[in-house]
Simulated assay, not measured.
Amino acid sequence: MATTSPPTPDYVMGLMRGVIDPELGSDIVELGMAKGATVTDDGWIRLQIDLTTSGCPLRAQIQKDIRARLTSLPGVTRVTIDWGELTQDERSEAMAKARFNVSQNAPDTSIPSTTKVVMVASGKGGVGKSSITTNLAAALAEQGYAVGVMDADIWGFSVPRMLGVDGELVSKDGKIQPLVREIGTGRLEVVSMGFLVDQENSALMWRGLMLNRAVQHFCQDVAWPSDLDYLLIDMPPGTGDVQMGLAKMLPRAEMLIVTTPALNAQKVAARVADMGAKNYLRIVGVIENMSEFVAPDGSRHSLFGEGGGQQLADDIGAPLLGQVPIEPAVSVNGDQGDPAALGETP
């Protein structure tokens, strides 16, 4: 009676291209995790699989997928998996490949393809990121542009108050309708979690998956108008789930980093820039906020240190686009919903 020949090592490795790392979203061969296979004449397949970490919680799932693809093959009598761990360089290369693949296969959104999307980000809270976002949006609208503002700072939403936009988000034809404020010959189209809570001081007790779902709705289920020139996204501070989720959903977006002259703000802002670069986002530049205080007599005082913005720009290879001094009208006008960029302040 004829016996069935076992598969070749090349055939086995080809099957491994169907095994997807659940976290990275790419196959284990492309990621360099499947190092090779040997097959004996009596059908014993032996695989070397190196994971990103030795304690990878998804190891059982990967193992189950591998065995499901191999154990039922004709001529296979046994499957052995030798587990290892990628080196630091291999792990970095695998992550880079995974991020690039994600950037090339972004999900569909309702944001027009002609819209310039800018993520306004910071490493830590309290540097004036939302103030920069709202004043930049208002200034662009005053010049006649249609400007969308997405308040993705889910926990610390402040955009509605700072732009003087109030109301509730409603749905029409299955799409969330942004709230609109006309400014000069332009307009603002705003969405925020602040429009979905009863009171501005209500706390949102949400965790990663719910947060990602909220910003996914803002990207996919909002009726962003077809003539939208800009979409400014007020990002949460840091490099958490929301930031990484948006980077994956909007790979063509650009990132504007806001920092202060203080060294500690500059250091954490560098991590945000690194997150953006690793997700293939273009870092358009750095804004140094609260750069100095100019007294009525014209004297200048660097209350938070000097040089943090320029140092960050040099470190990440992006231009320093501007330095914004401490201006009381920015805070006062923001509290009143009247961005200082629309007034006669310096």
Rank of each mutant, 00 (worst) to 15 (best):
143 Q>Y: 05
74 P>G: 13
35 K>L: 12
289 N>D: 07
207 R>F: 03
52 T>V: 11
21 D>E: 14
89 D>N: 14
279 N>M: 13
258 V>S: 05
270 A>G: 09
124 K>P: 02
335 D>K: 02
124 K>L: 07
331 S>Q: 12
230 Y>T: 10
275 M>V: 12
85 E>H: 06
159 V>F: 09
97 K>F: 11
235 M>E: 01
258 V>Y: 08
332 V>C: 05
91 R>H: 12
95 M>N: 14
251 P>A: 07
151 D>T: 02
177 Q>R: 11
130 S>C: 06
299 S>G: 05
2 A>Y: 15
19 V>H: 01
22 P>L: 10
159 V>S: 07
251 P>G: 08
102 V>I: 15
327 E>F: 09
15 L>P: 04
54 S>N: 04
30 E>T: 15
89 D>T: 15
173 D>G: 10
129 K>L: 09
287 I>E: 09
176 I>N: 10
240 G>Q: 03
193 M>E: 02
105 N>W: 05
140 L>M: 14
243 Q>F: 03
165 V>H: 06
177 Q>W: 01
243 Q>Y: 07
54 S>W: 00
167 G>K: 06
266 Q>F: 08
52 T>H: 08
189 E>Y: 12
115 T>K: 01
11 Y>T: 13
73 L>G: 11
310 Q>P: 00
315 D>Q: 13
208 G>D: 10
94 A>N: 05
36 G>L: 13
215 V>F: 06
206 W>F: 05
103 S>P: 01
124 K>G: 09
33 M>I: 07
225 P>D: 05
197 V>Y: 08
97 K>Q: 10
122 S>N: 06
189 E>H: 12
7 P>S: 10
271 R>V: 13
141 A>M: 00
98 A>E: 02
319 P>W: 13
287 I>T: 01
148 G>F: 00
159 V>Q: 01
237 P>L: 03
234 D>W: 01
62 I>F: 07
232 L>G: 03
221 D>E: 12
252 R>L: 06
29 V>T: 05
229 D>R: 06
1 M>R: 13
219 C>E: 00
317 G>Y: 08
127 V>W: 00
255 M>H: 09
130 S>V: 03
175 K>G: 10
74 P>K: 14
192 S>D: 05
201 N>W: 11
59 R>S: 10
173 D>P: 01
72 S>L: 14
102 V>S: 14
148 G>W: 04
3 T>V: 15
245 G>H: 01
106 A>F: 06
301 H>P: 05
279 N>K: 12
66 I>H: 10
78 R>N: 14
158 S>G: 10
294 V>D: 05
213 R>V: 08
31 L>K: 04
39 V>R: 02
155 W>F: 11
122 S>I: 02
72 S>F: 15
231 L>Y: 06
332 V>Y: 12
129 K>Y: 05
9 P>I: 14
179 L>M: 08
172 K>C: 10
158 S>M: 02
200 E>R: 13
339 P>W: 13
11 Y>C: 04
340 A>K: 03
60 A>L: 05
58 L>M: 14
41 D>S: 15
3 T>M: 14
135 N>F: 10
